[in-house]
Design a protein around this nucleic acid. Structure first.
Length: 259
DNA sequence: ATGTCGGCATTGTGCCGA
């Protein structure tokens, strides 16, 4: 089962690029972030035609997440637990059952800039809630994939110019500490099991020819519970589509699970 | 740091968020 995450930066602006990528990459599951529309405005037809079930958790203008799946999506839950007053649409989870059941958690973690400030406080609070949700997922002892745009640069090697991000909300020590606390609960960070060193990115700014200069950062991640990590057979980044027509500023990251 | 983009409010363009 191929499971991908992709921050598409606006579903309505990305229709063709997203459809083309689905046709080429053929994921069984695509977890999408920044759909930037309400549920009723999500264009379902291109995905219906391709045999995907669609579940969305949208919001007007900003944020918004969705899961596309060729298998039925069961037990869908919207919103990250732990703050009833949180109005931002950044979390949706569901279960797919192939040969094995897989819990899919799709997240769009807050950017947090400018830091310090209320937006950064919200980011750190959201990461505390994520830590609690991951703790519960691990206690379930089942296969779960927690994937999305984390807006976290885990280490200096995950940025072309690490110095530029040291005081940014994506790279501050407190951000990296919170990330490490989550991973260290017992999750496997999929991409780094097979790829080491510099130059592996999932995001390039639209400005200043960042993609052409490979001036990127690695901020989209897939975390796996042990039961999911034991099923992983491959992982990759579809970076080439960043150079295609009307690209998102992020590219897809995917894992293959024997499930 | 800034060579950009998407969506909104709004009809020509400036703001926000990233």
């Amino acid at each position: 089962m191929k499971i991908a995450t992709f921050n598409i930066n606006g579903i309505r602006a990305r229709g063709q690029a997203l459809a083309d990528w689905l046709d080429e990459s053929q994921p069984d599951v695509a977890m999408l972030q920044e759909i930037k529309c309400v549920d009723e405005a999500f264009p379902r037809e291109p995905f219906d035609e391709r045999g995907y079930n669609v579940e969305t958790h949208g919001q007007k203008g900003f944020n918004g997440v969705a899961i596309l799946s060729k298998l039925p999506l069961e037990d869908v839950s919207r919103g990250l637990p732990g703050a009833d007053d949180d109005e931002q649409a950044r979390w949706i989870e569901a279960t797919v059952v192939g040969r094995r059941a897989i819990r899919l958690c799709c997240l769009y973690l807050p950017n947090g800039n400018p830091a310090p400030g209320p937006k950064y406080d919200y980011k750190l609070g959201w990461m505390e809630r994520l830590e609690r949700r991951v703790t519960d997922l691990l206690a379930d002892e089942e296969a779960a994939v927690v994937a999305g745009d984390y807006n976290v640069i885990p280490l200096d090697e995950d940025a072309a110019r690490p110095d530029a991000w040291r005081s940014d909300a994506l790279g501050l020590p407190a951000t990296r500490d919170a990330w490490r606390r989550i991973v260290n609960l017992g999750m496997t960070e999929a991409y780094r099991t097979r790829n080491r060193g510099r130059g592996h990115f999932t995001f390039w700014d639209y400005q200043a020819g960042a993609y052409d200069r490979n001036d990127g950062i690695r901020i989209d991640h897939v975390l796996l519970t042990p039961q999911a990590a034991d099923l992983m057979t491959d992982v990759g980044i579809d970076h080439a589509i960043r150079g295609g027509p009307k690209p998102s500023d992020h590219v897809p990251l995917w894992v293959e699970l024997d499930a």
